[in-house]
Simulated scan of single mutants.
Amino acid sequence: MLRTTLLSMTAVAALAAPALAESHMEAKDIVATAQEAGDFSTLLSAAEAAGLVETLQGEGPLTVFAPTDAAFDALPEGTLDSLLADTDKLTEILTYHVVEGAVMSSDLSDGQMVATVNGAEAEVSVGDSVMIGDATVVTPDIEASNGVIHVIDSVMMPSM
């Protein structure tokens, strides 16, 4: 009887080990989370061109309002190419999409001004949807090991 119980306990532990290991796996950083999502290749390429990938992989926490590939595609023709050629302007725009700290959508309120990493502020609107500037948050609160991603439907341009 004791042998059967020990074998049963060993079998249960062996079956539970992979699930337990998965539940304790470290969450991915902002860059890895965006890569896995698959709809941010333009944003990630732009971050690489601007030298910001390491920052987005850093300790954080950071909140990124992440434009999708479709958001970048909606820019006027030639805009992205000119930004990729002007890394200072590209960096200014990309850092306008980043806020220090882990800011969840429930932390945002209507009319709130959030300070972005580039030094400019962006206004939050909360109604039927959450907006930051003129961009609508289409998927909020994607948690990463070093912060939060909010998917937005357009590229925000700072008015500095």
Rank of each mutant, 00 (worst) to 15 (best):
2 L>M: 10
9 M>D: 03
9 M>G: 04
9 M>Q: 09
10 T>K: 08
13 A>D: 02
17 A>F: 14
18 P>T: 08
18 P>Q: 09
20 L>N: 11
20 L>R: 13
22 E>H: 12
23 S>Q: 10
24 H>S: 14
24 H>Y: 15
24 H>D: 13
25 M>Q: 15
25 M>H: 14
25 M>D: 15
25 M>K: 15
28 K>G: 04
28 K>V: 06
29 D>Y: 07
30 I>M: 04
31 V>I: 13
32 A>W: 04
34 A>K: 07
34 A>C: 10
35 Q>G: 06
36 E>H: 11
37 A>Q: 13
37 A>V: 09
39 D>T: 12
41 S>W: 03
43 L>C: 05
43 L>Q: 04
44 L>G: 05
45 S>N: 14
47 A>H: 10
50 A>V: 01
50 A>G: 03
52 L>K: 02
53 V>N: 03
54 E>C: 03
57 Q>C: 05
57 Q>Y: 05
58 G>P: 04
61 P>W: 08
61 P>I: 07
62 L>F: 15
63 T>P: 02
65 F>G: 09
67 P>L: 03
68 T>Y: 07
68 T>M: 05
69 D>C: 08
69 D>S: 08
71 A>D: 10
71 A>G: 10
72 F>T: 03
74 A>D: 15
75 L>G: 07
76 P>C: 05
80 L>H: 02
81 D>V: 05
81 D>M: 02
82 S>I: 05
88 D>F: 09
89 K>D: 08
90 L>R: 01
90 L>C: 09
95 T>M: 08
97 H>G: 09
98 V>I: 14
98 V>T: 07
99 V>S: 08
100 E>F: 07
101 G>I: 14
101 G>D: 12
103 V>A: 06
103 V>D: 04
104 M>F: 13
105 S>G: 11
105 S>F: 02
105 S>A: 15
106 S>V: 11
108 L>S: 11
109 S>P: 00
110 D>Y: 01
111 G>S: 12
112 Q>I: 08
115 A>Q: 15
116 T>C: 14
116 T>L: 13
121 E>Y: 08
122 A>L: 05
124 V>H: 04
125 S>W: 00
127 G>W: 01
128 D>E: 15
128 D>N: 15
130 V>D: 01
134 D>H: 02
135 A>G: 00
135 A>V: 05
136 T>Y: 06
137 V>G: 01
138 V>K: 05
140 P>C: 09
141 D>F: 03
141 D>W: 06
144 A>D: 02
150 H>P: 02
150 H>T: 04
151 V>P: 01
151 V>H: 00
154 S>Q: 13
154 S>N: 08
158 P>R: 04
